[in-house]
């Protein structure tokens, strides 16, 4: 049983590409922000917002909605792009990212941005919040599913492992977390700064259902979400192997573009590589 056809895949791939172009435009307009970590999970967030998750942009507080928690809050640009394309707010407003008075803050702000479920930016806190949402859904007997996106460097924060313990203890099968396993953080490769491996074993030891995928393959992302939804009594972690900066040659795997906007030349090249006619 698959929940997609070829046309859906093509639609999603085009959408992911569109979100990537937004990221480049937004960070270029802001001359700051985090392109690398945004591009790396563009495919995952596209699958979630345009296929997997149930929500109503016109009724953002619909009680049975699925929820998304961006734990690595610095990667807000692609999140905002997804929210805008999904209909939460006008796409034109994306270019106000990080500007004084904008509702698109440098890091997600629940009090300002429609669709943002929880403010993030201080790493390592999102999974606990997702668990809280999962517990509430169980208490209220709702079928809502909670999706959480974690950075791999972010996993160095101990709170993640406290949350990992809680989710399996309370059998939160409505919680699905992704690790954006791009193997990069700010000071360099994760395995050099503070090694995470063996990562699969760690999550298994904490009682999670573990799935490993290529985080840029739309079919694999959708299949993993479907499998996660079918697992009873256990939370699922999808370790998505990704490339930081994916889609823009000079940003791919480049630590420099963690928190740096493209300049005018880079902007043009990036958009061209992403298929924009300019």
């Amino acid at each position: 049983m698959t929940l997609y056809d070829e046309r859906t895949i093509q639609m999603l791939e085009a959408k992911a590409n569109l979100l990537r172009r937004h990221v480049i435009k937004m960070t270029y307009a802001a001359q700051s922000g985090h392109p690398g970590g945004s591009l790396s999970y563009a495919d995952i967030i596209t699958a979630l917002f345009f296929k997997v998750m149930r929500f109503r942009p016109q009724e953002p507080l619909w009680e049975d909605r699925d929820k998304f928690v961006l734990s690595k809050g610095h990667a807000a640009p692609v999140y905002y792009a997804a929210l805008a394309e999904a209909g939460y707010f006008p796409v034109e407003d994306l270019l106000s990212l990080r500007k004084l008075g904008s509702y698109l803050q440098g890091h997600p702000c629940r009090m300002k941005t429609p669709g943002v479920e929880i403010s993030t930016g201080s790493l390592g806190q999102g999974l606990s919040v997702a668990n809280g949402m999962g517990l509430a859904a169980k208490l209220d007997r709702r079928s809502s599913r909670i999706y959480c996106l974690l950075g791999d460097g972010e996993l160095q924060e101990g709170q993640n492992w406290e949350a990992a313990m809680l989710a399996s203890h309370y059998k939160l099968d409505n919680v699905t977390a992704f690790v954006d396993r791009n193997k990069m953080q700010i000071d360099g490769p994760t395995e050099q700064v503070m090694s995470l491996e063996p990562l699969v074993d760690k999550w298994k030891a904490f009682g999670w259902n573990v799935i490993e995928i290529n985080g840029h393959d739309m079919r694999q992302i959708l299949d993993a979400c479907e499998k996660a939804a079918g697992v009873m009594g256990r939370p699922t972690i999808i370790i998505a192997h990704t490339i930081k900066g994916k889609g823009v040659s000079f940003m791919e795997g480049a630590v420099a573009f963690h928190g740096k906007a493209p300049n005018a030349d880079e902007y043009r090249i990036a958009l061209r590589e992403l298929g924009e006619k300019i």
Partner: peptide
């Protein structure tokens, strides 16, 4: 700190 906003 500027653009990063309140969280930072």
């Amino acid at each position: 700190v500027g653009g990063d906003g309140a969280s930072h």
